[in-house]
Amino acid sequence: MRAFDYVDATSVEDATTFLQDEADSALIAGGTELLVLMKNKVINPRLLINVKSIDGLHRIRADGEGSLTIGSVATIAELGSDEVVQRSFPILADAIRVAASPQLRNMATVGGNLCQKPRCWYYRGSFDCFLKGARGCHALNGQNRGSGIFGRSECYAVNPSDLAPPLVALGASVVIQSPQGRKQISLADFFTLPRGELLNQTILGRDEMVVEVRIPKQPHRSRGVFLKAMERKTWSFAQASVAMQLSRSDDRIEDVRIVLGAIAPIPWRATAAEDALRARALTRQLIEVASAAAVEGAHPSGDNRYKVTLVRELVKRGLSALLNT
């Protein structure tokens, strides 16, 4: 790691002002992502701004009416052991149970998880790539076992977050703050395909910081499933994952969100599958239709073809688990 200055932020305003004043700075929360990138000299900030020191920013608050507000430096372990998460948002608890390792869950934060960089080894290694300001994507015709099958853009790296798919499926939003003020946007809109000048998978600006994640109350009789395919049983990034949340009225599906993870540069809504399900009763036949629809338009580029099968199968298994609930 190159040498840097370090400061404990006293407030969100303090942290974002430091971000604004020092162009070559980065926020540090869990550090599990940042310090690896710094050790590999992918990024070399001159100032680290510690945001764990900000009073109250790790708090997880239930409002008593079914919604939850999560401070961005709450650790993933803290979120996973939260009673409201376990009771009201089980797909999030399930995703956390298979995310990373106990040590990483004790360190890594919710905000940091949503801002993590892709695992693409061209990006993490000593290659110039689109995300580092060069042209083109080496993964297109190179090592692309882990690359995306949806959301073709100028970069093929997938978003690795285990938390993002369930949070998007639950309709979560994020609160972002900069020295210019605060705004709340849907988490789905927080993620974006890297292109043009935007060398990132999120819209987060240079002097902006994720402050909170909010999960709204779910509809009555809402049920969900989270499934993650991994190369080994534990402590592994997803090869593909699916988070789905649906609610029914008189057995007809009303609200439905199916979000795929690790197969596109953003958490990917399987909208064709959702459309196939909406206003219908869930049957084995419909599950076949919906799981086939989930991979419509997939464009594998070589060694990542297995992800098409994985996605179809994960969606099928997820919906099957909801069949008799």
Binding site: N50, K52, Q103, M107
Partner: peptide
């Protein structure tokens, strides 16, 4: 009291 990877913690933290 909780397990962490000390290679990813700065001493200053």
């Amino acid at each position: 009291g909780v397990p962490v990877y000390s290679c990813l913690k700065l001493a200053i933290e």
